[in-house]
Design a protein around this nucleic acid. Sequence first.
DNA 1: CCTTCTCCGTGCAGTGGCGTACATAGAACA
DNA 2: TGTTCTATGTACGCCACTGCACGGAGAAGG
Lengths: 242, 242
Amino acid sequence: MAPAPVQNQILNALPVDARERLFSHLKLVELPLGKVLYESGGLLRHVYFPIDAIVSLLYVLDNGASAEIAVVGNEGVLGVALFMGGETTTNRAIVQSGGWAYRLTGTRLKREFGRHASLLHILLRYTQALITQMAQTAVCNRHHSVDQQLCRWLLLSLDRLNSNKVTMTQELIANMLGVRREGVTEAAGKLQKLGAIRYSRGNITVLNRRQLESGCCECYAVVRHETDRLLPVTQTPSSASA
Amino acid sequence: MAPAPVQNQILNALPVDARERLFSHLKLVELPLGKVLYESGGLLRHVYFPIDAIVSLLYVLDNGASAEIAVVGNEGVLGVALFMGGETTTNRAIVQSGGWAYRLTGTRLKREFGRHASLLHILLRYTQALITQMAQTAVCNRHHSVDQQLCRWLLLSLDRLNSNKVTMTQELIANMLGVRREGVTEAAGKLQKLGAIRYSRGNITVLNRRQLESGCCECYAVVRHETDRLLPVTQTPSSASA
DNA sequence: CCTTCTCCGTGCAGTGGCGTACATAGAACA
DNA sequence: TGTTCTATGTACGCCACTGCACGGAGAAGG
């Protein structure tokens, strides 16, 4: 059974007339783990509305070190630079959790802006939520411990998944957080001792979400609240075909 | 002699007709050092186009620790949340270097969007530049030393000033970078030994910009290039009255 | 001139994360 | 069933930055 576009919160929030038109131009595409949707400096040709995939915005330094700037799931859209006017960004978008997304060409998207002002408005509100996430990431990178950041990262992932299982090696998490793999091992070990998670060769099972929240810094909640404020789940469920 | 609005790069980049209309609604206001233009969570009522002032976007944590998210001078505008749709942001805007700015009410700004599509387009391009700066700040906070970040910070300030003198105590710089005051003392001491700067009780004189650039991480150049790309100095100098 | 205050310099122990190296244990595969 | 590979655990020295404490020096102001 194919996922419906409305499973993406942005698409779901569109008024009916805009949805009807837009949906006919959407293409369902698979986003396998590790796929690079766009590269730093590369020209963007599409925007992606994730359904069940999670995509990281990653910055890679000259020396190969990296850090996650933000994470996007079914609450958002990838490729904001397309409608912000720049057409490219300085970061890489890489699939962190495989799944599906709806894809739309940039030219088509911009054509629709002329017809439906609400489309741009919603995308801009999401972009502000993304800005908030980036700002908070900057602060978190400065002031908080690996332990705290791991909790934040797990919670961000949980929110964008249907299950309590995150498929991700410690090595990859380390790349996202921009820390050593061993640092993640240690932090994850503590959480496992507490009974908050279970870890086994790339499979994390979250056993107790509360413990993650209490081990976390304020950064997660700030972003969560701001995202909820900017993107209320307006539930416009009429006339979806699937 | 009053500064002209065109000294702000965004206002300057507007096409003539949009400028003429907009300028009549601008109000010149002074931005003294330390003034808070808006507070975290506070409702934004105006946008500010700096002329010679520099404003920091600062995030303040629950425990009082802080970190600069981005810095805005005459290349930009303050209050992007107003046209992004959120009306508030989670950070504080505080004047880092006193001066003047042109102010515009949010309602007036939005009214003008309807008439001049180019106005929104330019503001969105600037917002993308701001996003780039935030993202780079996040990476820099993760991977680079205080020495490097001080160089970056000084260069960001220099670019937004007419002179080579930065008025700023080490204590305040430390708040911006989110590090200890002593850390700034040490880093500044090194730069002074190298002959790159001269430091005296809140007055920094940059003697050799090149040395700052070579002591800096790539983060400065990345943001600089991207800003230049997104906001070319289009120079539309016609019919400015002042 | 003397006091006071702000700003800057310095020292020291403590620690969190880094780089490196290596051990172990599931998974994959022959 | 044994080999190989990948993922995780652990240990050790190192260094940047922290928190704290204090000393000195320039500005301000009587």
